[in-house]
């Protein structure tokens, strides 16, 4: 199981590429501008990633998106980010 880290908004090549390289059990963490994808209106951008989609608390908060994110996205702080990298065998960053 890999952790994919995405720091770009949904409508970008980086996001498309991350999704096409995502394995069936891999997890996807949204950081930086990636957290724009956590908005409920962007839900359709992450088909099939239910239960495996995470967003970084501090990046949501800084952008006024905390509390506005879609249900089903798991919000983690930076310690949770480290914990995700512990649990996943390896990480791949998409930017």
């Amino acid at each position: 199981m890999l952790l994919h880290i995405l720091n770009r908004a949904p409508d970008t090549p980086a996001c498309r590429q991350a999704l096409s390289a995502l394995g069936p059990a891999d997890r996807l963490l949204l950081i930086e501008d990636g957290v724009i994808g956590a908005l409920p209106a962007q839900r359709a951008a992450f088909p099939g990633v239910e239960g495996r989609l995470y967003a970084l608390h501090e990046d949501l908060e800084a952008r006024g998106l905390l509390g506005r994110h879609a249900d089903g996205i798991q919000v983690v702080d930076v310690e949770g980010f480290v914990a995700l990298t512990e649990a996943c065998e390896r990480t791949v960053s998409w930017y």
């Binding site: 930086e32 930076v78 310690e79 980010f81 480290v82 990298t85 930017y95």
Partner: peptide, 24 residues
């Protein structure tokens, strides 16, 4: 780290992450 400081958030993110992993 592949990004310049002050141009992108990456350096802030990396430094935060570095401190957090050491704290754990």
């Amino acid at each position: 780290l592949l990004a310049a400081p002050y141009s992108h958030q990456a350096s802030h993110s990396a430094l935060r992450f570095a401190r957090a992993l050491l704290a754990r």
